[in-house]
Design a protein around this nucleic acid. Structure first.
Lengths: 294, 294
DNA sequence: ACCGCCCATAAGCGAGGCTTATCGCGGCCG
DNA sequence: CGGCCGCGATAAGCCTCGCTTATGGGCGGT
């Protein structure tokens, strides 16, 4: 299974014909036949149905075609990236950011990076922690910012922020002490947060804290409809729910919502910077150290 | 640039030594030297710094190493998928779903698919329209459900849902007619929706409608902090904002929020099923047809 | 029935990637 | 300070693999 074989197979799949594929690839027809035969032997699958008018894909062939396309696409992307570096010297540093990441931290670090590594272009994407882990391992992301330390051996991690969380409540909620609340006193409300799939570890931490204070974390939203968050969060200012938030909330709060400190249950949200342990990128190392000092 | 060269280069990069890489790959040292030389010639870049104690990566080498890792990772994934099919006959059909997709539509179609194609495992991911387009083209997604018809020639598309949108308003809002509102009457409120980057086409459609009715679409949230939606949406029930929603809203509305039909400006949200035009997957075709009839 | 196009098979050839042999260089130790 | 060892580069030969041309069987259209 080599790229050459993928290219040949895709040509056959797209042309629906061995001969036509051979013409397109500017090789002889037997060369294509041999390559297909080799693929079928390696996979142990019938990839093509031979008809007298040409060939069609079997189900197995369809699977292989899709995978082959994906591999070749990633390969082309790699060539582009290398070519880009060869001509302009520019490198892209791809960073993933979770929800509610302190908005100043990253721009400051990126600005510091720009002065020392002017040829590094930073591309930031909003991604859940789980997605970032996959992307890091797949090489589609250079630096992740996530809400849990990965167990993985070949990922390095460093805490970049620790935020002491308070709660957001409806401004009209009755509070014995206006400056702080205890989790237990929120028993009548439901917690609104984020889908568990986005960051299972952090979700479970929160759920454990809630349970230990007599609160019901609530049924996690059913997969497939987990993100219909718009209406849910309206519940906060309607006095039906609460959510956690750090004290230094950067967005202006609407008057109907107020932040209050938590007492009794220090809930700390950590955000880790995570990167492939065997990455030797100096711009990445520089950015991480800026995040560390910032 | 072939996979073999990538593997050799990565071995050298990870070992920090040509000789050690050769031992690991169970080939002779000159074979590795020759491969590296070929790579350097093809790229026109110096990939390694030769030190008497071994070799190190140049910046160019670091870029290539990262790309090579990504390509090989995708390649391994392809082998796994094909092997999976070869042994179990199972195929994965990867589907992307946007926010607020009618929750029954997909499960029904998937159930219908399961009866005709029992070996197809469906994997659903919540992704923005923009992300889905990339994933489709990269071969990382088999079927996308998005809020705009792609201009792309090699993507086929079909409308699966048209939803006539109304507005969600604070239940306490004054409404001359309780059963419908005109967009113009919402001039004092701000629209809360989704980040433009998630689905630029649909966003711009909405923005155009708003402007044509004398409303200000508002400044799109600054990139990098666009998704801090929790507090924003509290604004709806606080009477500061409105959002669009189809009439058949599946989640129970909190009492502080009410749905109202729109008159004067029929705003229709279409969701398209999108797939690679040259995909011949029969399970995909079956699912699409179920979505069409459902 | 024949011709044309399809794909598969067979046999020969050439290039590319392997091998072994050898060199130059620098670090390290006696 | 000299010799030695391990590093990587170069040279030359060989073998495998993927190409070629030649050919055969099967099916459809005229």
């Amino acid at each position: 299974m080599e790229l050459r074989e993928f290219r040949v197979f895709l040509a056959v799949a797209e042309e629906g014909s061995v001969s036509a594929a051979a013409r397109r690839l500017r090789v002889s027809q037997p060369a294509v036949s041999q390559t297909i035969a080799a693929l079928e032997q390696q996979t142990g699958l019938d990839l093509l149905v031979r008809r007298s008018t040409g060939v069609g894909l079997t189900d197995a062939g369809t699977v292989l075609a899709a995978e082959a396309r994906a591999v070749l696409a990633r390969y082309e992307q790699a060539l582009t990236a290398v070519g880009q570096f060869a001509t302009t010297g520019d490198t892209e540093l791809r960073i993933g950011v979770p929800l509610e990441f302190p908005p100043l931290l990253l721009p400051d670090a990126v600005a510091a990076l720009a002065s020392t590594h002017p040829r590094t272009r930073v591309a930031v994407r909003h991604l859940s922690s789980a997605t970032q882990l996959d992307a890091l391992r797949a090489g589609d992301l250079d630096l992740g910012l996530l809400r849990s330390r990965p167990a993985d051996r070949d990922l390095d991690a460093m805490v970049v922020v620790e935020e002491k969380l308070g709660v957001l409540l409806a401004a009209t909620a009755e509070r014995p002490d206006p400056d702080s609340v205890r989790l237990e006193s929120l028993a009548g409300l439901s917690w609104v947060g984020f889908p568990r799939a986005d960051s299972p570890v952090w979700f479970d931490e929160i759920a454990a804290v809630l349970r230990s204070h007599g609160l019901n974390p609530g049924s996690p939203a059913a997969p497939g409809q987990s993100l219909i968050a718009e209406v849910k969060f309206a519940a906060v200012s309607a006095g039906q729910a609460f959510t956690f938030a750090p004290e230094k909330w950067t967005q202006p709060l609407p008057p109907s919502v107020a932040w209050t400190a938590l007492t009794g249950a220090p809930l700390v949200r950590r955000t880790w910077a995570v990167w492939l342990a065997d990455s030797r990128r100096r711009d990445l190392a520089a950015l991480v150290s800026h995040l560390d000092q910032g």
